[in-house]
Nucleic acid binder design. Structure first.
Lengths: 101, 101
DNA sequence: AAAACATTTCGTAATATTGCGAAATAAATT
DNA sequence: AATTTATTTCGCAATATTACGAAATGTTTT
């Protein structure tokens, strides 16, 4: 047992959180869709995906909670985009991690 | 709905599987430990981690199932190492994915 | 053969994820 | 004001994850 009060480092926790956000194929696909065009309306994403809209909404929320995407309300639709800060941090942490060996 | 029979591409599924393997801080830490020394005995890993040995065993199994590590039985211990093929594939898929935007 | 050691499997509990359809919310259009 | 459109929240069910300690497995040492 390590002596630290915390079980894991902040980086380990963050890395795991980003990895978890990407741990379902549909969320990988959502990120790919958002990357391929600057932004995208929720409905347009739904048309490309084999899941119910309510289920998509949950996946979008997970990506948002992880800080990887952001949604802008432009009535009556919601425009989703990749969130730079989160995406860049995920990139940085994962790249570092993958380079280690 | 896409016309393809399969819901997701092979790459999306593989990427999600590797991401899932790394979606818990303790598994990130295990990979870091294994990367920092060529190989490691299960018991030595357990000494560094704040979880029960049976729990560690489950996490090791998940990493093994994902193809990221391999265990060699050198009685009475088991020596765990990073599995090159899997690790390299994860590296490749994730790097590609992260570069996309 | 018995004791010690290293690790896994089993049983179980608590919690999280994934999925859907129905209902709710909220804005735009008629 | 009523209808349409876009999306989310709710309620629920099925399954998966995470964790632990106890028991089992298999090897080495005594």
């Amino acid at each position: 047992m390590p002596m630290s009060n915390e079980k894991y480092t902040e980086e380990q926790v963050k890395l795991a959180r980003y990895a978890k956000a990407l741990s379902h194929p549909v969320r990988v696909q959502i990120m790919e869709i958002l990357a391929s065009q600057s932004c995208c309306y929720s409905g347009d994403i739904a048309d490309d995906l084999p899941i119910a809209r309510s289920t998509l909404s949950q996946h979008l929320n997970e990506l948002k909670d992880a800080g990887l995407i952001q949604g802008e309300f432009t009535p009556p639709k919601i425009k989703y985009c990749i969130r730079r800060e989160g995406w860049d941090e995920a990139k940085h942490l994962l790249s570092q991690f993958l380079l280690m060996k």
